[in-house]
Simulated scan of single mutants.
Amino acid sequence: MLPFPDADLMYIVDLLPEHERERYLEVREFLQSSVRPASIDYWNREEFPFGLLAEMGKHGLGGLQTDGSSKLFKGLMYVEVARADVSLSALVGIHNELIVGMIDELGSQEQQDRWLPGLKSFSQLGAFALTEPDHGSDIAGGLATSARLEDGEWVISGAKRWIGAGTIADFALVWARDDADRQIKGFIVETDRPGYSATKISNKIGLRIMQNANIVLDNVRIPESNMLPGATDFSKANDLLRDSRAWVGWQGAGIQLATLDVARSYSVHRKQFGKELARFQLIQQQLAEIVGNASASLALMAQLARIQEDGKLGMVQAAMAKSTCTRLARASVAMGRSILGGNGISTDFEMGKIFGDAEILYTYEGSYEINSLIVGRGVTGMSAFV
C-alpha cells in the first residue's frame, strides 16, 4: 500500500460531514471500479457509454444540483468523476450546473415537472446550446441565432457549435436573440422537432467520449411556453454561468489526481537501470510537483466552495479558479506523460487519454487567456478586452 493512497495530502475530504463523506467514498468506489476502466475503450472509439448512465443516475450524479448537498460535496463529486473520465465529468457538470440548474431556477413549473425527474435519473439528457460557429469568447455581444414570435410559436434559426451531447440529447437549451427586443433568451428545443439537426464533431484529441455537435436550427418552431420565463435576458443566466466556470476548476483538480494515480503507480513498478523509476530523483521531483499542484488546486477549490456557500462568489474568483487549476493541470499532466516516457502517449497506459483531455479543460468555459483577463480586470479595475 502506497502512502496517501487517495492523494488527499491536505485532508480536504475530512472537511465533509460524516454522512456526505460516507456517500462520497461510496460513489468514488463506483467511479474507480466501474467507470474509469470502462471509459478508455469508449474514448478510443469516440463512443458514448450509454450503459453507464443508469448506474450514474442511481448514484445520484444526475441530481447533485438540487439534492441539498453542500458545495464542497458537489465539487468533490466533480473531482472524482473527472478522475475517472473527463468527458463524463463534463457531462455531469454541464448537466447539473447548466441544464438542471437553469430549468430549476429559471424554468416554469410546467417545464420543471416535464423535465427534472428524467434529468435527475439520467433517463433524459439536455444539451446547452450557447456557443456558435463564429462566436465563442464574444458570445454575449455577438450571438447571432434568432428567435421571433409568430402566431403563438417561437421560430428559431441559427447555428451552434461544440455543443456537448448535441447528438444524443432529448432537448437543447438554446440561447437566441429575440428579434423584437434584441434580448438573448433561453428556449427548450426538443431535438426531434423539424428543422433541428445535429452532426457529431469527430477527430478530437480530447474529450472524445463527449458527443460534441454542430447544430443547425432551420426555422424550428416551438410552443411559446418553451421559453424559460426566468431567462428573458442574458443577465438572468449569469450566476449559473459563473458557477459553471468555477466547476471547471474542480475538473482541473480531478484530472491531476488521475495523473498522479497513473504516474505514481507506473513509477513504482517500472524498472530501468536495475531499479524502480520512483527511486530516481528526477522522477520524485516531478511527482512532488504533480501532487503539489493537485493539492494547491484542491485547497483553492475547497475555499471557493466556502465562499460560494456564503454567497460571496463573484466572476473574478470563478475565473481565477478555472484559469489557475487548468494551468496547473496542463503542467501536471505534461510531467505525468514524461514519467511514462514513450508509454505516456498511449491510451493503453491511460496517460495518453488524460494528456489529450487536459488540453480541452484549458480551453472551454472561457479560454485560459479570457479568464486571465477577467481576473486582471478584477484586480486592477481596468479592462484589457478589445
Rank of each mutant, 00 (worst) to 15 (best):
Phe4Cys: 11
Ala7Asp: 14
Leu9Ala: 14
Asp14Phe: 04
Pro17His: 08
Glu22Asp: 15
Tyr24Ile: 01
Glu29Cys: 13
Phe30Met: 05
Ser34Asn: 14
Trp43Asp: 02
Asn44Ile: 10
Asn44Thr: 13
Asn44Pro: 06
Gly51Asn: 11
Gly63Ala: 00
Asp67His: 05
Ser69Val: 09
Ser70Val: 07
Val79Lys: 08
His95Gln: 04
Ile103Thr: 02
Pro117Asp: 05
Gln124Phe: 07
Leu125Ile: 02
Gly142Pro: 02
Ser157Thr: 12
Lys160Trp: 05
Arg161Phe: 13
Ile163Arg: 04
Gly166Ile: 00
Phe171Asn: 03
Lys185Val: 01
Asp192Asn: 14
Gly195Ile: 04
Ser202Lys: 15
Gly206Ile: 03
Asn212Tyr: 15
Asn219Lys: 15
Asn226Val: 02
Leu241Ile: 09
Arg242Phe: 01
Arg242Leu: 09
Arg245Ile: 02
Arg245Gln: 06
Ala246His: 00
Gly252Arg: 00
Gly254Ser: 04
Ile255Asp: 00
His269Ala: 12
Arg270Asp: 12
Phe273Val: 12
Arg279Cys: 11
Phe280Pro: 06
Ser297Pro: 03
Ala305Asp: 08
Gly311Gln: 05
Met315Trp: 12
Val316Cys: 03
Val316Ile: 09
Ala319His: 02
Ser332Gln: 03
Ala334Glu: 11
Met335Asp: 10
Gly336Asp: 01
Gly341Trp: 04
Thr347Asn: 11
Ala358Arg: 06
Tyr362Arg: 12
Thr363Ile: 08
Ile374Cys: 01
Gly376Glu: 14
Arg377His: 14
Val379Ala: 11
Met382Gln: 15
